[in-house]
Design a protein around this nucleic acid. Structure first.
Lengths: 245, 245
DNA sequence: GTGATTGAACAACAGTGATGTGCGAAACTC
DNA sequence: GAGTTTCGCACATCACTGTTGTTCAATCAC
């Protein structure tokens, strides 16, 4: 686990922590801790005060993109590989924001497909590709996540129809369906689902036990769920095709 | 001048050149030349054949973004500084693609403004800013340039109204007005001009003697031209405010 | 006022990317 | 098909960048 993540979790669990304590916890020098705290404060994870920092992470929110991006890489890669295999050459795909979908974008780099990513991270991953026809949706990028949201994003999605939507989410269960932490995100995901003929959810197993604030869609609107470990989560019983990577 | 640029010009001037000749010209090893030619071929600058490469640069087109980006940096920076000073805090700005406008984007990074850049390069330059309200237009990024074009881009521009448009161009003269190499680009620039109350052209002096294929707008639609050296180009006589950086 | 905390400057360090060399493989010429 | 050229992979080298730790003067909180 990266030191940044370690600090962010320690501060979140304790509410607030001093620089010296974090230094002895991580084994790094105090100067390094200060620099780390500065980075985390810029990401909105915590708030500096003289001598330490206090957590700003709400219970219902998720840690920022930079801290999630290198977590569970194995699972994400395996899920992304399966998703990429489900996509045929020539297809048009709308690709959700999030770290798992970013892995899918990387795997599509040399494929002959049309892709509209809903986050600038994926746009950047694909912008150097000669084989991908890249479409950028409009919108306002949310800081850190760089997910494109707002009226411009919705308008872009409404103007187009895709073969497949690849959607990540923050929570997925047979009972509550697909849920997201952010209301804006939820409406963009919904628009993406509406504008696609086939919907694939790419979800690591930790999300299958979780439910977030904003409802996106019922499981009945999903054509397939790709995940990394099978739990008895009731999805299959609800009639969804579950693929385990 | 970078070796890449040197190679690209040598091949363009000669039509085609061998690896060995390029190696002795640049002083680099043949292996390095091969790697460079691979890069340039990927950018569409030239075409490899066994033993050498043949130029693909048409006379009427411009060299790709990567080769222009570090040319005339001084002039671009000076122009960009003046342009940034013309923009007041709180303004909404639509920012054209191109290397000069990218410099403007960099200068706006810590300002309190709303910006819609028309190229992904500028989007990336601004996406880490906490003070800029960033709006991404939709569109299809042109390879290399990453300028957003097409119906999605036009729709994004039509949906919004800006205080100021900062436009770069490939040619500008009192007689032919503002011109661009690419037809798609021209229509995006036109839409940007239409959706802004004030139009600033950021143009280095080399463009003032040139005219490109696609007509964008007459000089009468420009409120100010910022350039780096004054020639007797007739712009001032045509009633345009010319600012020399 | 006093002691802890901070941030800037500098040095050491590891990681990354660019370049060159050697060699076997592929391709072109005759 | 033999000989020659060209190619690209693998590895060593080098410069550069980004990270970390140390020192010290300035700043802040009490």
């Amino acid at each position: 686990m990266s030191r940044l993540k370690q600090i962010s979790e320690a501060v979140r669990d304790a509410g607030s922590l001093g620089v010296a304590e974090l230094a002895s916890l991580t084994g790094a020098s105090e100067m390094t801790i200060r620099r780390d705290l500065e980075v985390l404060a810029a990401q909105g994870v915590l708030e500096r005060y003289r001598g330490g920092a206090r957590s700003l992470l709400l219970r219902g929110s998720e840690p920022p993109f930079a801290l999630r991006s290198d977590e569970n890489m194995d699972a994400k890669r395996r899920i992304a590989t399966v998703v990429a295999d489900l996509i045929a050459d020539g297809e048009s795909v709308v690709l959700d924001a999030g770290t798992t979908c970013l892995e899918v974008a990387r795997l599509l780099h040399d494929r002959r497909v049309t892709v509209m990513p809903l986050s600038l991270h994926s746009v950047n991953a694909l912008s150097s590709s000669a084989s991908v026809t890249l479409l950028v949706p409009g919108g306002r990028p949310r800081p850190g996540e760089l997910a494109l949201t707002g009226p411009l994003a919705l308008a872009s999605l409404e103007a187009l129809r895709f073969d497949t939507a690849v959607i990540g989410c923050c929570g997925l269960s047979a009972e509550h369906g697909m849920t997201a932490f952010d209301l804006e995100d939820a409406s963009v995901k919904r628009a993406a689902i509406t504008s696609a003929r086939r919907v694939i959810a790419a979800v690591d197993a930790s999300k299958l036990t979780r439910t977030a604030l904003a409802h996106v869609a019922p499981v009945s609107s999903l054509d397939a769920v790709v995940t990394d470990a099978d739990g008895d989560d009731g999805l299959a019983a609800a009639g969804v095709t579950v693929v385990t990577a």
